[in-house]
Computed example of a mutant assay.
Amino acid sequence: MAVQGTVATGFEGVREEFDAFLTGEEHEPGAQLVVHRGGERVVDLWSDGVTGESLLGVFSSTKGAAYLVTALLVQDGLLDLDRTVASYWPDFAAEGKGEVTLRELLAHRAGVVGLDAGLTREELADDRAIAARLAGQRPFWQPGRFFGYHALVIGALVGEVVFRATGRTLHEWYEERIRAPYGLDFWLGLPEREEPRFLTTLPMLPTPEQAAEMEAAAYSPYSMTGIALNLHAPDNGELSDLPNSRTVRAKGQASAGGIGSARGLAGMYAAAAFGLDGRAPLLKPDTAAEFARVHSEGNDLVGGAPDAFGLGFLAMGVRFPFLGADSFGHSGAAGSLAFADPRQGFAYAYTRRRYAFPGGTAPENERLLRSVVRALG
Rank of each mutant, 00 (worst) to 15 (best):
G136C: 03
P285S: 15
G237C: 08
G278R: 03
E123A: 12
G317N: 08
L314S: 14
G226W: 00
D126F: 06
T101W: 01
T9V: 14
F274R: 00
L115V: 06
G264D: 02
G267S: 01
F313E: 01
L134R: 05
L124R: 11
S54G: 10
D82A: 11
P321L: 10
L68Q: 01
A233W: 00
A156P: 01
A271S: 06
V58E: 09
G312W: 04
S61T: 12
A217G: 13
G252V: 07
P181L: 07
E290M: 11
K251M: 15
A356K: 02
R197C: 10
T23D: 15
P143V: 01
K284N: 13
A156V: 06
Q253A: 11
D326Q: 14
T201V: 12
V248Y: 06
G278N: 04
G264P: 04
A254K: 04
V58T: 13
D341W: 05
T225C: 14
P191W: 12
R15H: 13
A131M: 06
V318I: 14
A308R: 07
Q32N: 09
V42L: 01
D126Q: 11
A2F: 12
Y149W: 08
E160R: 09
L323C: 12
L199I: 11
G345K: 03
D116N: 02
D44I: 03
S296Y: 05
L188S: 00
K63N: 07
E175S: 09
G49W: 00
L276T: 05
T23H: 12
A334D: 13
S220M: 04
K284A: 12
I130V: 13
V248P: 04
A132F: 01
V7E: 05
G57C: 14
T225D: 15
F186A: 07
S245V: 08
E213V: 14
Y174L: 04
F339W: 03
H27D: 15
S60P: 05
G38R: 01
T23K: 12
L106K: 05
V34C: 02
N244M: 09
A86G: 10
F328D: 03
E297L: 13
R168M: 12
G30N: 07
R354C: 11
S87N: 10
G30F: 03
E172W: 07
G57I: 11
G49T: 07
G183W: 06
P143G: 02
A125M: 09
I130S: 07
L323S: 09
G252H: 08
T247C: 13
K97T: 03
A110W: 00
A362I: 07
A20L: 11
G144I: 02
V42K: 01
L115C: 07
V50H: 03
F140E: 08
V42R: 00
L68W: 02
A65R: 00
T51R: 06
T207H: 11
L231Y: 10
